[in-house]
Design a protein around this nucleic acid. Sequence first.
DNA 1: GATGAATGAGTGTTCATTCAT
DNA 2: CATGAATGAACACTCATTCAT
Lengths: 190, 190, 190, 190
Amino acid sequence: MRTKDEQKKEALFKATVKLVNEIGFAYSSVSKIAKEAGVSPSTLYVFFQNKEDLLISTYVNIKRAKGRAILSDFNDSLPIRDILRKVWRNTFAYISHNPDKYQFIEQFANSPYVGLVDQKALEKHYSPIIEVIQKGIEQKIIKKAERPYLVAFLFQPISYLANPRSCEGLELSAGDIDRAFDMAWDAIKR
Amino acid sequence: MRTKDEQKKEALFKATVKLVNEIGFAYSSVSKIAKEAGVSPSTLYVFFQNKEDLLISTYVNIKRAKGRAILSDFNDSLPIRDILRKVWRNTFAYISHNPDKYQFIEQFANSPYVGLVDQKALEKHYSPIIEVIQKGIEQKIIKKAERPYLVAFLFQPISYLANPRSCEGLELSAGDIDRAFDMAWDAIKR
Amino acid sequence: MRTKDEQKKEALFKATVKLVNEIGFAYSSVSKIAKEAGVSPSTLYVFFQNKEDLLISTYVNIKRAKGRAILSDFNDSLPIRDILRKVWRNTFAYISHNPDKYQFIEQFANSPYVGLVDQKALEKHYSPIIEVIQKGIEQKIIKKAERPYLVAFLFQPISYLANPRSCEGLELSAGDIDRAFDMAWDAIKR
Amino acid sequence: MRTKDEQKKEALFKATVKLVNEIGFAYSSVSKIAKEAGVSPSTLYVFFQNKEDLLISTYVNIKRAKGRAILSDFNDSLPIRDILRKVWRNTFAYISHNPDKYQFIEQFANSPYVGLVDQKALEKHYSPIIEVIQKGIEQKIIKKAERPYLVAFLFQPISYLANPRSCEGLELSAGDIDRAFDMAWDAIKR
DNA sequence: GATGAATGAGTGTTCATTCAT
DNA sequence: CATGAATGAACACTCATTCAT
């Protein structure tokens, strides 16, 4: 028997991201995705159970990779502000290197599909950040507020600033990114 | 009859919002929307050119209504902080009274459909806010930063906090909302 | 609006019978049936919920028509033997005039599809015959046996004799048919 | 190894019978049959040329086995009635021990597939019975009628009585079977 | 103005079969 | 010998839209 071609799976992920970004979930048909990936529509079913499985797998795949990228060189012993700034910078770095993947997960997260994903399991990949925030609260460096409020000000503005749909043409230099972080820090610091 | 017409159009808007939220753009077919609205699929074409027109009209319709709601009792002569807090409060009020409409525009704004809408024209409905921010910068009350940065911290967190998809079950009291505004204000104030 | 075209429904019934007889259930696809009937595959769904519904409707339709044909000029007051011979003759008449319809219901009745049909409801169309047999038993003209035994010898041989699959080329004259009935009568009479 | 081969072939026959009975020809795909048999779909093609070959082989296989079972302990020297009663009893015995195989050949025989089988060749397995009937006619014990008429009354009722699709729940004791034979004999005897 | 009938184009998916190992 | 990978063709069915009334 032949061996499964992982390149094809990768090509399918890539084609899914590209098409969903360009024409949306509604028009990203299985046959279009397969054609974009250079395989037969039926081959898609060798790698994924069905269309839903393909979409969810693509999403989970990217989310995990993003988590890993953001937490690379995570150093628990730095000051809290420095840790969060590092995360902030990594996030922008990831997004600028993978704008299409980022756009995909944003669109996915705002679609009914997201209800089919085990969010709890995915959040585990981001738990070190949550723990840092918690520590900041305990050390009275960060405002005593429920987690969603802090997450909202620490990470939500990124969705806007890095998204070409909302900020097309906005160039973000390293300085801009750090200054934006200062604003985020002002929002959450005590 | 005029009245009956408008009722049907309104029913179609409502059905569109409901179905798109529940099953997404991909599965919200014209016939399903028509059935939900209690009219024939062909009647839909009396009011809208095609499906795209229906979706875009629904989006623009809500966006405008939201703009009006947020800027109701807008008072130019108040202190800048008070004006923005009023806008902030109005935004949460609108969302809590129209969670489905809000969810629809969030999903729409994160889909390729949004590219078909004249964003510039829509933004006019929100220009008084932009002017207030501009005034704040000139009066050195607000940080001197490009507009997207300020918008990102002033309004983007709301998307997260008010969205049941990200913060399901989070109850926001009037006090919570004001404290969240304090964080936004800390981010943008000088 | 247009009015539903009953001719199309009739054409679909006819095409179903023809194709299923020629190539079997397995290869009688919706599109082939539609093409044979001269309508679009999607038009089929205007008249039937799905393929299953089409097949079952075709079966039930024929079964009812056959029941009516067999029981036409049913006369309760004749001697029992004459009544049953009339039914026997009518059955052969129906089959020879509708060999394709007959073949279809035979094939259907020997497929798993038959499990989806409410047999009890269908049998009502044949109840006068059952009652005659019952009367024959009571009058000690017919052997005292459970109903299936009598039905098996009265009607089952017809399936064989009239079926071109088993008796291709067998010509049945009026005399042949009556002689065959004599054999059936010998089997069940006291 | 020879043994292993035959086991797989046998498993494929068995799986074919089971699936075709349960879901019909239309839905009995090669891959489902292979999975049911515990082999790979491609292995199926080691034993059979294609799907058609598998189905026909299954049919012919069973038909032959049934012929052998029915004619076991065939004794030419017994009285004709006794010979036929023996065949009759053997047939019921075979069916009650192999209801699934029996159902398969009934369904197959009522499908267009049967046209692909060389019936003449198969009938040879049953020729001793035909000869007995012929002898009966010559000895003026059996009615002088063409063969199909006699076959129809001698064997067709069995299809009905033994088929769970038509006579679900009908229990046939040895006495019942013999009484049914008496009816068949009444039909064909002079 | 409003409708159900009708359809060509397209959907997601499974099929029988072949290929490479 | 036996297999899982791979696929073009076909499947049942739904789509957005138009037509006739």
